[in-house]
Write a protein that binds this DNA or RNA. Structure first.
Length: 279
DNA sequence: AGTGAGGCCTGAAAGC
DNA sequence: TGCTTTCAGGCCTCAC
């Protein structure tokens, strides 16, 4: 499930492979996503040159030379494949195929929770999806103070607040649990109960966890693959996510007494934590 | 405004 | 064995 590190990995791979490429053919095989792909999508981008790839939160932005930008979200099961082979054989759930002079770009999304649309580049910041995206976790303005100010009026669980893309963008269900573990903060804590010092630590943990994941090429769970088909390796470093009942890696307490890593549901999402280490 | 619930969608895994 | 049910989750919309 692509979160910030996975989108960053995909963006970087696409940048290397197809920046400057000319789109000679755009095919929309299925347009029913979270939002329908506009019916004139293919016409709008046919013949355009790809200027650059950017990332805003979990959205990938593709700037074209015709003053349009693609807004691309991978949802939960979205994959992007880059193929050099001219005779690409379509696979199940290949929904959009962009043929360029530098390779074929394929958008594959089994669950179709993703989306792909376009808007004028100049209007991007006002786009209904983009405008509500909060600061990037690596942006200079994100600090303990920034997080504290954004959480101080929230009574929801801090884990739920981390998933709110308008506070800090890019954090998904895996890294929310991992960052809170790294910061030794219980996911159930009311967001407004965090002290400025805890917010500072949490910001550092978010950056730490995301940075490590980017370095590892993202997590590979059921759905995520890098564009070259390879696997990310960060799942080998998950301390708590999907580790129910296993010993906490930084805890020396007796597994028989603590039961190990716990799993609960917050905001309808699985949440993992160590009851002993996290306060 | 903030919060919580429901829904979209498919495939893997668990349950019967 | 084979069918049915449950679960996974990003993010939208709607109701309170």
């Amino acid at each position: 499930m692509p979160e910030l590190p996975e989108v960053e990995t995909i963006k970087n791979a696409l940048s290397l492979a197809v920046s400057g490429a000319v789109i000679s053919k755009a095919e929309v095989l299925c347009d029913r996503f979270r939002e329908q792909i506009p019916s004139d999508f293919a016409d709008k981008i046919n013949g355009a040159t790809i200027l650059q790839f950017r990332r805003i939160g979990k959205y990938m932005i593709v700037d074209l030379n015709n003053r349009l930008s693609l807004i691309w979200h991978l949802g939960m099961s979205g994959r992007v494949k880059i193929c050099q082979n001219e005779s690409y054989v379509l696979q199940k759930h290949d929904h959009v195929v962009l043929t360029t002079d530098k390779g074929i770009i394929v958008f594959n999304d089994a669950r179709r929770f993703g989306m792909l649309t376009y808007c004028p580049t100049d209007d991007l910041s006002q786009n209904r999806y983009i405008r509500k995206i909060g600061a990037d976790p690596f942006a200079p303005e994100v600090s303990g103070k920034y997080l504290f100010e954004h959480l101080r009026r929230k009574t929801e669980a801090v884990k739920v607040a981390l998933l709110d893309q308008s506070v800090i963008c890019g954090i998904g269900n895996i890294y929310a649990s991992e960052a809170l573990y790294d910061a030794r903060i219980l996911p159930t804590r009311e967001a407004c109960s965090l002290s400025p010092a805890e917010c500072q630590k949490l910001v550092e943990s978010i950056r730490n966890v995301l940075q490590k994941a980017i370095k590892a090429g993202g997590s590979t769970l059921k759905d995520y693959r890098r564009p070259d088909g390879g696997m990310g390796y960060f799942q080998n470093e998950h301390c708590v996510y999907n580790q129910t009942g296993k010993p906490c890696p930084h805890c020396t307490c007796d597994l028989n007494k603590t039961g190990g890593i716990r799993k609960i549901v917050l905001g309808g999402r699985s949440t993992f934590y160590c009851d002993t280490l996290q306060k």
